[in-house]
C-alpha cells in the first residue's frame, strides 16, 4: 500500500529520513520510533506535503511526486498536534473537511454524522470544539480523517494525551478500522500500542529503518525457550549445557537460548524424556516489541 525507496529527507543539515526503503502492506501497521525518529516527516512525504531530498514515495502503486494532490484525495490524515478550529462544532468541522476532500455537501454532512457516531461523539458534536476534552478532540480528529472514506489513513500519535481508558478506546477504534478494508498506518512511540492494535510494525530510529515485519513474526525471534519441569531442574540444565545450549534458571523456569528454535525444542524434549522429568510447560518465549527495538536499533 505504501512504499519508499532509498528515501531521504533533509532540512538543511538535519537529516529527518535517511535511505529508507520499506514496503508497508495493507492492514493495520504501526510506525514506531522515538520523538524525532522521522515519523511525522514520513507522513508529510506520503501526503506530498514535503518533497524528498532523494528517493521516491509511492501510495497505492502511484508515485506521490507525480500527483500529490490526487494522492491526498485517497488519504486520511490525523495530525498529532491540536489542529481543530476551536469556535466551530465538531459536526461543522468534520463536514467541512469532508467537502474539502471532495464529498458533495449533503454527503459530507451525513458522513460527518456517521463518523462522529463511530468515534463516540454523540450530542457533543454540536458544541464548539473549544469546549472539548483532549479525548473528544482526538476523536474529532479521527472522525475528520475518516470522513471521506480514504483508502489509507495516517494516524499520528492518536493516543497522545489520552488517559488509560481513552487510550484503550482509541486503540479499539484503530483495530476496528483495520478490519474494515481500510489500511491504517499509526505512528506512536508506545510499542505496547502497536503490539495491541497492529498486524505489522515498522520501526524507525533517527530516520533509518530498524526493522519491519509482521508483529507476531518479530515477537517470535527471541531465540529463548522457556521450560518448566516438576522438581529440581539442575539435571536438566546440566544435560542441555552438555548439548551446547546456554541455560539460566529464573523464577523456577529454565530459560534456554537456542539459535535454532526447532532444534532446541527437540533437544529439550529428548532430555526431559531421558531424565524422566514431568514437563509442566514448554514454550518459545515471545519478546516484547520494546526488546526487539532495543536489540535492533543501532547504538
Amino acid at each position: 500500500m505504501l512504499r519508499t525507496e532509498h528515501l531521504r529527507k533533509a532540512y538543511g543539515s538535519t537529516v529527518a529520513i535517511d535511505d529508507l526503503s520499506v514496503d508497508i502492506p495493507s492492514g493495520r501497521v504501526g510506525l514506531v520510533g522515538a520523538n524525532g525518529a522521522g515519523k511525522t516527516t514520513l507522513f508529510r512525504l506520503f501526503l506530498g506535503l514535503a518533497r524528498p531530498t532523494a528517493g521516491s514515495v509511492e501510495v497505492g502503486g502511484r508515485r506521490v511526486a507525480e500527483d500529490p494532490v490526487g494522492i491526498r484525495a485517497r488519504i486520511g490524515y490525523m495530525p498529532e498536534h491540536d489542529c481543530l478550529p476551536l469556535d466551530q462544532s465538531a459536526a461543522d468541522v468534520v463536514a467541512t473537511l469532508g467537502e474539502l476532500a471532495g464529498l458533495p455537501a449533503r454527503a459530507a454532512r451525513q458522513r460527518a454524522s456517521d463518523m462522529l457516531d463511530l468515534v463516540g461523539l454523540d450530542e457533543a458534536r454540536f458544541r464548539a470544539v473549544g469546549t472539548y476534552s483532549t479525548g473528544m478532540r482526538q476523536r474529532t480528529k479521527l472522525a475528520q480523517a475518516l470522513v471521506a472514506d480514504p483508502e489509507v489513513v495516517l494516524l499520528d500519535e492518536p493516543t497522545s494525551g489520552l488517559d488509560p481508558s481513552g487510550r484503550d478506546e482509541m486503540l479499539d477504534l484503530v483495530a476496528r478500522l483495520g478490519a474494515d478494508e481500510m489500511s491504517v498506518l499509526m505512528s506512536t512511540h508506545l510499542l505496547a500500542d502497536v503490539q495491541r492494535a497492529c498486524d505489522h510494525v515498522v520501526m524507525l530510529d533517527a530516520g533509518r529503518l530498524v526493522v519491519a515485519g509482521g508483529t507476531e513474526d518479530l515477537l517470535d525471534t527471541t531465540g529463548t525457550i522457556l521450560v518448566e519441569v516438576d522438581g529440581p531442574s539442575e539435571a536438566l540444565v546440566a544435560a542441555l549445557t552438555g548439548r551446547g545450549l546456554a541455560c539460566a534458571v529464573s523464577g523456577g523456569r529454565v530459560e534456554v537460548t537456542a539459535p535454532d528454535a526447532d532444534a532446541g525444542l527437540d533437544a529439550i524434549r529428548d532430555e526431559v524424556s531421558e531424565l524422566g522429568l514431568p514437563l509442566n510447560s514448554l514454550a518459545t518465549r515471545l519478546t516484547s516489541l520494546d526488546e526487539v527495538f532495543v536489540q535492533r536499533a543501532p547504538r
Partner: peptide, 18 residues
C-alpha cells in the same frame, strides 16, 4: 489568522488542495 494560529492548515492541506 485562526487557521494559522490554531494550526488547522495541516488538516486543510492534507486534502486535495494546493
Amino acid at each position: 489568522c485562526p487557521e494559522r494560529r490554531q494550526r488547522v492548515l495541516p488538516l486543510i492541506f492534507s486534502r486535495p488542495l494546493t
